[in-house]
């Protein structure tokens, strides 16, 4: 039924002025800052719980990668360990030593590759450079060394296992760069 009088009852149900709905008041901004603060506290809690109670799975035992002759000097081979999706690379250095690292750059997880003859592992995304012998950061934005595996040679076969600093060279305690 049409009426000439405008029915304004709906305003009682939505008592918000148009100006208030389009502008962010300082009150709202302060409340939003408090919300962000709560989010950051929750994030810190998540990091604390994840780091202390749910550490990443360790690699158990030795895992076969390839035969020694399948990898030429200066060559690399990417592999994954059974039951894991983390990509690794095995490098046969120019001095015939083997090294294995996680293939994800510690900066933004780009795939890294070995530059043959240079002794360096490069991340092409932001030109991060790692030492191919130790995994330490040489240049660029990566904040941490590449996670490393210990390579075990048994005759002609190449195996990898969880890296312990005592297995190869003693690794000095790394300083936090944060």
């Amino acid at each position: 039924m049409a009426t000439d009088k405008k029915d304004n009852h709906w305003k009682e149900d939505f008592p918000v002025y148009q100006l208030e709905s389009t502008q962010v008041s300082r009150r709202d901004f302060a409340k939003f800052l408090c919300l962000v603060s709560g989010g950051l506290a929750v994030g810190s809690g998540y990091v604390a719980i994840k780091a202390n109670f749910f550490p990443p799975d360790k690699i158990v035992g030795e895992h076969f990668v390839c035969k020694k002759h399948e990898l030429p000097v200066g060559g690399t081979r990417s592999f994954v360990i059974n039951g894991s999706t983390i990509p690794y690379i095995l490098i046969r250095m120019e001095n015939d030593e083997f090294r294995a690292y996680e293939q994800k750059c510690t900066h933004l997880s780009c795939a890294v590759f070995y530059k043959p003859g240079s002794g360096k592992i490069e991340c092409p995304c932001h030109n991060g450079l790692f030492d191919a012998f130790t995994g330490e950061v040489l240049a660029g934005p990566p904040p941490r060394p590449l996670p490393r595996l210990t390579v075990v040679i048994k005759g002609e076969e190449v195996y990898v296992k969880d890296f312990k600093p005592d297995n190869d060279k003693p690794d000095p305690n790394r300083q936090s760069r944060s």
């Binding site: 603060s37 950051l40 810190s44 809690g45 990091v47 604390a48 780091a51 941490r144 936090s176």
Partner: peptide
């Protein structure tokens, strides 16, 4: 806390969480 946790220095994570909660 995140950077240290990724470097396996987990000791800083809980004090950081407590400090963050107090600030909140």
């Amino acid at each position: 806390a995140l950077n240290n946790a990724l470097e396996k220095n987990t000791d800083i994570a809980f004090p950081s969480f407590i400090a963050s909660s107090i600030l909140f």
